[in-house]
Amino acid sequence: MRVYALDHVQLAMPRGLEDQARSFYRDVLGLTEVAKPPALAARGGVWFAGGSLQLHLGVEDDIRPARKAHPALLVDGLGELVSVCEAAGYEVTHDANLPGYDRVYVTDPFGNRIELMEPIGNG
């Protein structure tokens, strides 16, 4: 018996704001929307993928955004992605406290903290 991989990360979002999720995760971060199975699609929310990353946003009526707990997404071209985030109106916080990485934090439209990180020397 073993735990060997992470299948996906799920974050919460308010009901009916799937277009805001698409605007951030698809249009700003560049992830691809993935169709939810029909039985799960009826619940609302939206799923995204990029490389081996699977990120699901599920509807939560009494949403409490993840402000400390967060997904850390590996990226290529962090500087360009920071510019895209800022141009779309998202505030980016730089953090130089992790040796070997350039990294920033951005908050999605629902208040969830997202870490974007790039190994130094990849940009």
Rank of each mutant, 00 (worst) to 15 (best):
E18H: 10
F48Q: 11
P14V: 06
L40F: 12
R22M: 07
R15H: 11
L57T: 06
L6E: 04
G50W: 00
Y25F: 07
A42V: 14
L6D: 00
L17I: 00
R22N: 06
G30T: 10
V46E: 06
A42C: 04
E18P: 11
A39M: 10
P38T: 09
Y4A: 12
D19A: 15
A41R: 15
A21C: 03
A49V: 04
S23E: 13
P38K: 09
W47R: 05
L57W: 06
L29A: 00
Y25I: 01
L11W: 06
W47V: 04
Y4R: 12
D7S: 12
G50T: 00
A21Q: 04
F24N: 01
L31R: 01
K36A: 14
P38Q: 09
L53W: 02
F48P: 10
H56Q: 10
A35M: 04
L11M: 14
L6G: 07
G16C: 08
V46P: 07
R43A: 14
A5K: 13
A49T: 13
G16Q: 08
H56A: 13
A42K: 15
S23W: 03
L29S: 01
T32Y: 02
H56D: 08
E33P: 09
A39V: 13
H8D: 08
E33W: 03
L53Y: 04
M13K: 04
M13W: 02
H56K: 09
E18D: 15
A41L: 10
R26P: 04
G51H: 02
R22E: 12
L29F: 03
Y25N: 05
V34D: 07
